[in-house]
Design a protein around this nucleic acid. Structure first.
Lengths: 345, 345
DNA sequence: CTGTTAGCGCATTCAA
DNA sequence: TTGAATGCGCTAACAG
């Protein structure tokens, strides 16, 4: 409630001096006054008015965290532990660096651009941005932007991104599946309109198949709806004999777990009838039965890296890696089993 | 980037007129000018500077959403689907009402108070606040505050809270357990230092036991750690024969699912050896095997109610119910089974 | 219907 | 080492 001016008055000094104390410009203030002002600041519980700060400095110490997602196709907004985990990490890290976090979900790039301007955001962290909009956003925003898990068109712009070795993840899992004799594999993910984590993972699968002289057809990329009802309809079709696929590789544990569970409830044995694999290695993978064979990623690290890269950008420090690919690790559990008579590797 | 002044210049009108257009005071502006100004606004992609707005109006259109939680005992920050679901709902609802959401986790009441002052927050939504701090926060903050799932001391202050019929939830589950012959039941929850959702649920259990002429002793409230390692140590002890309890009633599906899973991995059959019940009825409950018998709550409704109550508070509209208790519903699945030879009800 | 003006609280020159 | 003065962009009260 108290303003700098009031503090100054009470201390019998000028506002400038108080401001200097506040900003640690102790060299410009005599020790006696320093102490006195600090005491009053404490006593009055001085809290700056960020409105004035924004106005005077033209920045806000707010970082916008934007989740690109549909209004709410179902309940799937933040329920995926991946989203909530990274959000929690981001909040923690940003706070540690003295920044405030403004959380926003959107699908409209103009809204994001406006948000940045209105709030004089110091930086932006964008999650799940399709590559069509990442270019536009990048172009029209001057403040530092760090993308998480994004892929970009080749438009000559500089992007800063924290991602995963998605191709590798797909590759490793496909290899594993192949080694268990699964040549009829489907990759299950949201349909990407453009390069994305999902398409990269699928490419990895393809590579693994090609290495074995096999071809993973386009139709083996089965688009999965964000609506659980629609998904379940799909699973039902997949259960029909004769089985089209012997292994289903989901691009997230969230979907994989959902599927395993759906199958279980209908007495369709996993991995007896069909093998299932996931991606993320989050709590879901160890909650369902059988526990998921999946691709591990370190979401905490992702959040930490994103914030630390953003901080470097804000401080205008050099950023060496502009497109970080965090490692993945194949994690074998119980949801994949060898095809009868074809146990290799 | 453009300011009101610049827009005004370009349109050949005064800043006030532009401001009037912006605020929909169309009655004060001639149609011709209105149209012209609107066009320029659009063309220049005018975005207000919130710093100036805060300064001039002394409020920010920001709602602070505060999660009270320890720094990070484990990975349990936002992983509980309850937290992420309500967060997603809050974001969506606040945005719908034209507010911005500042997300913050904290355990320090002074930090919250300072936050409200620095940012001239229009309102606050506080989650998981222990009753020791809710009083202090309530006292020293002038802006509207809505608590979610909080219990308060009887200090004569007005609190606005969206909660659950926790007592009822505990009661119903305990009754169900009793009807299946489970007289040796443990209630598993974080240890509350004060009235809380957990203590209310336990009280409900007690009530149900009392109705049967049974006493549910204090020791049947088993505190559960936020660290999964510590929890698992506890579960191990619980598995030791002879079984102390025949039913474990967890205060969240998150913990219940974790326990069921722990037991499963050790070949300890649920509900064969021990029955397990949860609370929340979130996605976890239908992911584990057996699916959890649990107490259903509508988290979306909770979020919506919280925001709508806050909006009424902000608009200074009368708020009739100050402590809303949303209903709960016993949801029977497969994790509880009758005790041998004691099937009643 | 339109324009003028005086702050809001702070950072940041520039003077003393 | 300290202080006075200016401006950031907007709102709202008032004058025309």
């Amino acid at each position: 409630m108290a303003t700098i001016k009031q503090i100054a008055q009470k201390a019998g000094v000028s506002p400038t001096t108080v401001s200097n104390v506040l900003h640690g410009n102790t060299s410009k203030v005599s020790p006696a006054i320093l102490k006195k002002v600090r005491a009053i600041l404490e006593e009055e519980k001085y809290a700056p008015n960020m409105g004035a700060v924004i106005l005077a400095r033209n920045n806000s110490r707010i970082i916008g965290v934007i989740l690109f997602m549909e209004p709410r196709s179902d309940e799937t907004v933040l329920e995926d532990p991946f989203a909530s985990t990274i959000l929690g990490t981001l909040e923690q890290e940003l706070r540690k660096h003295g920044y405030f976090m403004m959380l926003h979900t959107s699908v409209d790039k103009d809204e994001v651009i406006r948000l940045a301007a209105t709030w004089k955001l110091d930086g932006l962290i964008l999650l799940c941005v399709p590559s069509e909009v990442s270019g536009a956003v990048r172009k029209s925003i001057q403040t530092p932007v760090v993308f998480v898990d994004c892929y970009f068109g080749d438009d000559g712009q500089d992007y800063h991104n924290i991602g995963l070795d998605d191709d590798r993840g797909g590759y490793e899992m496909a290899r594993h599946l192949l080694s268990k004799g699964h040549t009829r594999m489907a990759f299950m993910a949201n349909s990407p309109d453009s390069p994305s984590v999902d398409s990269a993972r699928f490419d990895g699968c393809r590579r693994a198949f090609a290495e074995e002289g096999l071809d993973l057809a386009d139709v083996c990329y089965i688009p999965v709806s964000k609506s659980s009802k629609a998904r379940h309809l799909l699973y039902r079709r997949l259960m029909a004999e004769p089985l089209e696929y012997t292994a289903l590789f989901f691009s997230s544990d969230y979907y994989a777990a959902d599927a395993v569970n759906y199958f279980y409830e209908r007495g369709f044995d996993v991995p007896g009838r069909v093998s299932v694999a996931g991606f993320d290695d989050n709590c879901f993978s160890r909650l369902v039965r059988p526990h998921l064979t999946t691709v591990h990623q370190d979401v905490f690290q992702k959040g930490r890296s994103a914030v630390s890269m953003l901080m470097r950008l804000i401080r205008k420090e050099p950023v060496h890696e502009t497109d970080v690919r965090l490692p993945v690790r194949l994690t074998i559990r119980d949801s994949v089993r060898p095809i009868e008579g074809t146990p290799r590797a």
